[in-house]
Write a protein that binds this DNA or RNA. Structure first.
Lengths: 338, 338
DNA sequence: CTGAAAGCGCTTACAG
DNA sequence: CTGAAAGCGCTTACAG
């Protein structure tokens, strides 16, 4: 029931002007210590809090940043958001969340909204459809409106913006080399996301690690049935010894097919996938995975945006940050002692 | 580089007053059709969009709602957020996200922020710690500040607020009866969340369905090791035929233990758990689960809040909405044809 | 039908 | 050191 007290009301109670109260609360050196104390005391008594909308209008900003998320059910993005929220808090920024559901049309609609002045800056991972169609006009329109943009995770877009990515290529380059160092050479890769930038990078890492004379063994499809049959072929006909999976779907399919075919993990087949720790640890057997450090991706993205907003970065010159991944070994890459 | 055009600038270009422009754009009947058209034309040409911060200040609102989420990695909450975002869009509300990480201190800090006037209303699922300690002062302080609150999912708090919950008790009552109808009577329940409101409700549903003379078989612990050993006991010593799991952790543990002990699912053990469709479907074997319809929880919560904000609901009288669950049968509850 | 004025709640040059 | 004034970009009674 406490309707919030305003500066004006405080001023009246104190018999001073509104400007004096404002300056006192903002620690202006213009104000005498005595007055400052009186003002602060009464403000504290009434639990005065400045109306952020008014402050923002005066300062010609919004105090908020917009985050566009392609798919919140993907725990990677959920964690990125968590990292963003934590970092935003440090800079007194509020995070407004928009979910594109991997739809270009929705993304365009969101960007249209964002150019109306709801936010000071935008963090976006472009949707699958956007990537496929390479339709980036709506992103350029953000830039045209002088709204700083930071691309995160899906950064393969030539936009004048800061970027924070995951070191997808290196992750599978190193994972492949890990298998090779253990003497395995029938190494395959399964993917349901070869059409996405991140998928391409992961595949490229694998390809780069494979020597010219080594056979690439890929199971690739966005269609579940088709992917399953391709993975089954890799496991049963090509008898691969190790499998890299670029996404949760293919990893879980692979472990399921191995189970159905009686192929023992890790004895007969090693697997490394991309998935969250929680899921990886609880699978049977637990699956070794690439840790992408999503929270760091999120916090770094907000840091970059905040620097832009505070004019700390040179205009026209953009940062590209790559967060290193780590390979976490669980049961599915266990090797016997020799 | 388009710095946004303002009403004042439009007025100057049109040689009319600011008020006329404002009224014309807001379809005021006071304005002549001719003027209205002229104004709208120029506004469209310059892609005029009102500054939302100014509009909100004038209207003494923020146009935003705050969502407090205990744990965004929990895909249930991620989906709830998605439902909220979609519904908020319909009402021109922006969603500001706050993540409490199940921490009371963080939740209090967030509520403190929320009373500063960043949002018009709040959607909150209280943190585990908050529930355990039953420390709700910060929530009451939101109410004191006349900020409408909607509790979602974790609604077992006596706060004057609208509530949207999941029909947790009924879900397991019916699941238990399903097993009984199939002639099973050694039915157990595993839980890592018996201390939470939702956990208690699910357990109660199970207990209510069990007759007086039927033995309750519970595996209960927040400690993973201890929970594993208790579930193992249920499976091996008590030889249960069916298991209800209140959470992802216990479900995944149970299926893992069954695997280790060579107990076949569903032939020797049926399982019903709480988890997301994506995970449930891809597990080996796939796990039957309770679908909680998180998006509906989210959209209903926003609807209730919006009604409050628009004064459509009687002050002092609060809604409690329970979203029905559905039991989705996958492999883990497959019965042989007789 | 149009416009001048007040005001939403602040901040900040500027004058005294 | 304090305060009156202007202004952030709007909306809306009120006068004409």
């Amino acid at each position: 029931m406490k309707s919030k007290i305003t500066l004006k009301e405080l001023a009246k109670l104190l018999n001073v002007s509104v400007s004096t109260v404002s300056k006192a609360l903002n620690d202006s050196p213009e104000i005498s210590p005595k007055t400052a104390e009186r003002v602060k005391e009464l403000a504290a008594l009434h639990k005065y809090k400045p109306n952020p909308v008014a402050v923002n209008l005066k300062k010609s900003k919004t105090g908020t940043i917009g985050v566009v998320i392609p798919n919140i059910s993907n725990s990677f993005f959920a964690r990125v958001l968590s990292g963003m929220e934590a970092e935003a808090q440090k800079h007194d920024l509020q995070v407004i969340t928009y979910i594109s559901n991997e739809s270009l049309a929705r993304e365009q609609q969101i960007c249209d909204l964002l150019t109306s002045g709801f936010v000071d800056g935008v963090l976006i991972a472009v949707s699958e459809e956007t990537q496929k169609k390479q339709a980036y006009d709506h992103l350029f329109s953000l830039v045209d409106y002088d709204i700083p943009v930071v691309l995160y995770d899906r950064i393969n877009v030539s936009l004048p913006a800061d970027k924070v990515g995951v070191d997808d290529e290196t992750s599978f380059f190193e994972a492949t080399n890990f298998f090779k160092s253990k003497g395995l050479d029938r190494i395959g890769l399964a993917t349901a996301i070869h059409h996405l930038g991140v998928g391409k990078l992961r595949i490229r890492g694998y390809e780069k690690a494979m020597k010219k004379d080594e056979e690439l063994r890929l199971a690739t499809s966005t269609n579940p049935r088709s992917l399953i049959s391709k993975i089954r072929k890799l496991l049963t006909e090509e008898k691969i010894e190790a499998l890299l999976c670029t996404d949760f779907e293919s990893a879980i399919m692979a472990s399921r097919i191995a189970y159905e075919e009686g192929i023992k993990i890790p004895e007969e087949l090693k697997i490394i996938g991309y998935m969250s720790k929680e899921v990886a640890e609880f699978l049977t057997p637990s699956l070794s995975y690439i840790e992408q450090h999503p929270k760091e991706v999120g916090s770094k993205a907000v840091q970059l945006l905040n620097n832009r907003l505070e004019g700390k970065n040179e205009p026209g010159k953009f940062d590209e940050n790559i967060i290193a991944t780590s390979l976490v070994h669980l049961e599915s890459t266990k090797f016997k002692m020799k």
